[in-house]
Design a binder for these strands. Structure first.
Lengths: 153, 153
DNA sequence: AATGAAACACTTCTGGT
DNA sequence: ACCAGAAGTGTTTCATT
């Protein structure tokens, strides 16, 4: 397991906040040269700590602001059934997250659609079209209080 | 509301998948010049469709692979109580997501910690230290089947 | 591990269609 | 909106400590 010093931690925090700054700026804030920053970033990438760099998109601007958490229970829990279900989930673009969880339900999904009507259509033609789904329960998100992609290191 | 053509859609998909490619590469895939790509990206940024560029970090590599969904019910629901609760949530680094939801509970939180012991410590000293929390129910994530930051446009 | 300076690549601007 | 080419800026390599 890779070891971080304080500068690595600060650098990771900055990269998770804004990856488009220049190495010079990171260097200034860390009290290092651009080359030192460059080498630290490469080390974080090669060790697998940083997996990718992405653009984040505002849901409201692309008509996907209606967010639903859906609890799903399967009928059968054989290995094949479970794997088949998970394969189907990966193919459905409206599902942005899917977790296998402990408790009363088997899975919790997060779904992004335009509005309630689009959600109804999604449920009818996409989600419940998957075999082996026993029951579902939808929880609608009224407000997103906090949502960060950054992990505190 | 900004209008997208097919090239904007493809460009957004590529930027959400990997924002560190060069404009030349995006240009090649879209059949445009680097300048045209540059201008389209600037338009997406200025219109607020792209909100930021970030590095994504692998939870397992930074000892934050224990993920819990916690349902929270408040005692009082006056405006001040709610705002106070939401302010506290923003300050707690282990909480990466917080949604105000419909249904039996008021909020659903997503929490990243190292392990069960760290979760226990988090519950005792951070979460339940917030005033006005009525009840909590924790759902442990056994497996992350899908998790993408990309929204289909 | 770190540095400054050189070499290289990419982004951004300009002028024109 | 688009393009080609110039100018500016950032990244990456290298020799050195």
């Amino acid at each position: 397991m890779i070891k971080f010093d304080e500068k690595d931690r600060k650098l990771l925090a900055m990269l998770q906040e804004d990856s488009k700054n220049t190495n010079k700026e990171y260097a200034n804030k860390l009290g290092l040269s651009t080359t030192a920053v460059y080498e630290r970033i490469k080390r974080l990438e090669k060790s697998g700590v940083i997996t990718k760099y992405v653009a984040l998109v505002e849901k409201k601007k692309v008509n996907k602001a209606f967010v639903v958490l859906c609890h799903v229970k399967l009928i059968q829990h054989t290995k094949d059934n479970v794997l088949q279900f998970e394969r189907e989930i990966l193919k459905i673009e409206e599902i942005v997250e899917c977790y296998h969880v402990s408790g009363d339900y088997d899975y919790i999904l997060k779904i992004h659609v335009e509005d309630m009507e689009a959600y109804r259509a999604f449920m009818v033609s996409k989600l419940t079209a998957i075999a082996n789904i026993g029951s579902t329960q939808s929880t609608f998100i009224i407000n997103e209080v906090k949502h960060t992609t950054a992990i505190d290191v």
